Amino acid sequence: MPLHPDIARVLADLPAPPPGPPNPEAMRAGEEAAVPPVSARLPLHSVEDLTARTAAGEVPVRVYTPVEADAYGVLVYFHGGAFFLGSLETHDHVARALAKETGLKVVSVGYRLAPEHAFPAGLEDCYAAVRWAAENGETLGWDGTTLAIAGDSSGGTFVAAVAAMAHDEGFDRITHQILFYPSLDLDFDVDRYASLRENAVGYGLETAGLKPFNAFYLDGGADPADPRVSPIKRADLTGLPPALIVTAECDPLRDEGELYGRRLKEAGVDATVSRYPGANHGFVQNFSWIPAYHRVFEETAAFLGRES
């Protein structure tokens, strides 16, 4: 299936990127400038900025309460952005949609970014925020049942790594993991996955851009051979939480996400892989206004609500 026509029209109108390596400051400013005002965002019962005091230090979090209730399941969300972009603001609409469709209280994590903060700072913030949510369940109104983690792109990398870290440390409270078009293998050899060649050019994220976009993270000591960096390299996937892995047909990273799903299944993990036809990398953040892709939030809710 070709790229969805609405996505194709948007991509055709995008200006060419400036020459040279990515400029974090300029790109962050551009992202923040595109964030709509609060008055134009999906309304929820409440949205509150807090500071999670954790073993990793003070981590900014934004807590989304969908409706008034006595107690809630909790979903901890890690935004994407190639480890150097994204923020609580740029992905605010994703967190709001997750809260509305799942009915869970969503805790979005403002983790530290590369290159200012070297690996594993961001990962440690994400893991610590999950532990904080569990330890502060009374404050959050957590009902003690669902404690899910979700993330898009590099946030999906953190989801897989956090799930593994929790398993290794005997922290068994995570009930679900949701990975939206995750980056699971930071070895960008174009022969490793067919999708790196098939979707190399013309779909927004391009294969040639993977190395420069992730250079800030890798140059800060993130080794692609480390399973905390490339979770697909983890040898033993047994015992991990049930997983929903969402991939995009027109994404260079599609095949590594789908391979990870197969490996989870082979390890006995309840894993669902869901490919969205005509979608590109980033569609949850950028194109969920298209009805066919807004369905990803409904699918997430169904996954979280089904019997295990």
Rank of each mutant, 00 (worst) to 15 (best):
Ala121Arg: 14
Trp289Met: 00
Ala164Ser: 09
Tyr127Gln: 14
Arg262Asn: 00
Asp226Ile: 03
Ala121Leu: 03
His79Pro: 10
Thr247Glu: 08
Pro224Glu: 15
Ala248Tyr: 01
Glu32Ala: 04
Ala148Gln: 08
Gly282Trp: 02
Leu75Met: 04
Gly141His: 02
Val107Thr: 08
Ala29Met: 13
Gly155Trp: 03
Thr175Val: 09
Glu32Thr: 00
Leu147Pro: 08
Glu249Lys: 04
Val59Gln: 07
Arg228Phe: 12
Thr272Ser: 07
Gly20Gln: 03
Ala133Arg: 15
Leu11His: 07
His167Asn: 07
Thr146Cys: 02
Asp6Met: 09
Arg228Pro: 14
Ala161Lys: 11
Arg112Ala: 03
Gly73Tyr: 10
Val76Thr: 01
Ala97Met: 02
Tyr193Ile: 01
Thr102Met: 05
Leu205Trp: 09
Ala279Gly: 10
Leu85Thr: 00
Pro212Leu: 06
Ala222Asp: 03
Ala82Lys: 07
Asp49Met: 12
Arg295Val: 15
Ala215Cys: 07
Asp152Asn: 04
Ser230Lys: 03
Ile149Phe: 02
Pro277Thr: 13
Arg53Phe: 10
Thr51Phe: 12
Thr51Arg: 14
Glu206Ile: 07
Arg197Gln: 12
Asp6Cys: 06
Glu31Ala: 08
Phe283Gly: 09
Glu135Val: 08
Arg41Ile: 09
Ala248His: 02
Gly110Gln: 06
Arg262Ser: 09
Pro21Thr: 13
Val47Met: 06
Asp172Met: 15
Phe297Gly: 11
Asn280Ile: 00
Ala114Ile: 01
Arg96Gly: 00
Val67Lys: 07
Met165Ile: 13
Glu198Trp: 05
Ala8Asn: 12
Ala148Pro: 15
Arg306Pro: 06
Phe84Arg: 05
Pro227Ala: 06
Leu210His: 03
Asp185Thr: 04
Ala215Asn: 07
Trp132Gln: 04
Ala95Trp: 06
Ala271Ser: 10
Val59Ile: 04
Gly257Lys: 03
Thr65Met: 11
Val61Met: 05
Arg9Cys: 05
Ala243Asn: 00
Ala71Glu: 13
Thr139Cys: 01
Lys105Trp: 10
Pro120His: 12
Leu259His: 11
